[in-house]
Computed example of a mutant assay.
Amino acid sequence: MAAFRDSSDFIEPASDDSASSFSLGSFAIGSDYASTFDQESLVGSLTNSVYEHVYENGRRYHSYKLGRYPMPNDDKEYQRETVRNALFTDILGGKLHLAPIGDQPQKMIDIGTGFGDWVIDAADRYPSAKVIGLDLSPIQPSWVPGNVEFVIDDVEENAWIHGSGYDFAHFRLMVAILKDLSSVLVNEIVPRIGCQNGSLPDDYAVDRFYQLLADVQKRKFGWDFSAAEKLPTQLASLGFHNIQRKVFHVPVGLWPKEKNRMQQAFLFREILTELLEALQSKPFNGHDPDVGLTKPEIDTLFDGVRAALSDKKVHAYIPIHFVWAQKPLLTPT
């Protein structure tokens, strides 16, 4: 299994307010990729098969690039993503991001947009911008602001995504999923389990769950849950500068005394509870040899996770990392 530790020595402390203060100044983002064909000719050229779905174990999944992303795309998943979007917005005090992109960006893209909540919010917040949401799954709403466009595609297989003059590329929980991080622009959020007061037991169910999930997803899909630890270094190697990171600790369990922290704990409990249900459809259904657990063993572990999400004694948390960086403009030759 992945080498996750439950003490705070491997986790950055939560950032204080001063860590998020910066001057907008003159901030411009460019690209060193040259566009080789017209993006607009690609949009809308998809075949009907892209919009089909696959149904397994009572859940619905995308059929385009089947197996590339294993999570469902049905109404239950929409509920989970909506709550997750609410949690991230709450963490940021109502902001959609921390990157200092100014008040009038012209073109933005959200990679792995899912149901498109962030794109719609960004389009409302920045009416000056064309906001594109990209995903493998055709699940986005039809009624959207006029400056929104959704595209069904794989970010790692089409160079047009990189060469279209985006002022801001937004990612959410995508670093572990991407096969080749060096091929895309990145803005990432990363969860890990931690505890600062010594109340985390050695057999803490949420910690064991994440270890098992990391191991299974690595073997089945090649996902690397530790990829985010390399993110600042990789961004630097890609030519990014002004690389910054802010860390927030989201409570796991109902132990906080502060109202806003308890609100985050409730939101996270809903998100993880819905995730468990989705995973019990596949691959944690007791029939996948890659998981290595019987259905009773899986049920016992997941019941332990659900109990931990309501625990008031263990002061666990998920450190969520927001990373942003600036790509230098090309110097004319």
Rank of each mutant, 00 (worst) to 15 (best):
A86E: 09
Y69T: 10
F150I: 01
I139S: 12
S128R: 00
S142Y: 08
G116T: 01
D135P: 05
Y78Q: 11
D153M: 03
K65N: 09
R60T: 12
Y64T: 04
M71I: 04
L66E: 15
E157D: 14
E156L: 06
V151W: 10
K107M: 03
S142N: 10
E77V: 01
F115W: 07
K130C: 11
G94K: 03
Y69L: 07
A122M: 10
W118M: 04
I132D: 00
L98C: 13
H97A: 04
V131S: 11
E77L: 02
E149P: 07
E149I: 03
P72Y: 04
G67N: 14
A123I: 00
R84N: 14
Y55M: 07
N158D: 15
V155A: 15
Y126D: 00
K65C: 14
L98T: 08
V50K: 05
D117H: 09
L87S: 09
Y78E: 13
I101Y: 06
L87H: 11
S137E: 01
N147Q: 11
I91P: 06
V155N: 02
A86C: 08
N57E: 13
W143M: 12
A123N: 07
P105T: 05
Y55Q: 06
Q79D: 15
V50F: 14
D117A: 15
G146K: 05
W118G: 03
N147P: 13
D153K: 01
P70E: 13
E149Q: 15
V50P: 07
A129V: 00
I132L: 10
S63V: 05
V151I: 11
P72I: 03
L98Q: 08
F150S: 02
R80L: 03
E56M: 10
D154S: 11
I132C: 03
L96H: 04
E149L: 12
M71R: 05
E56I: 12
E77H: 02
I111G: 00
D154I: 03
L96W: 02
Q79S: 15
P145T: 00
V148D: 03
G114D: 05
P72M: 01
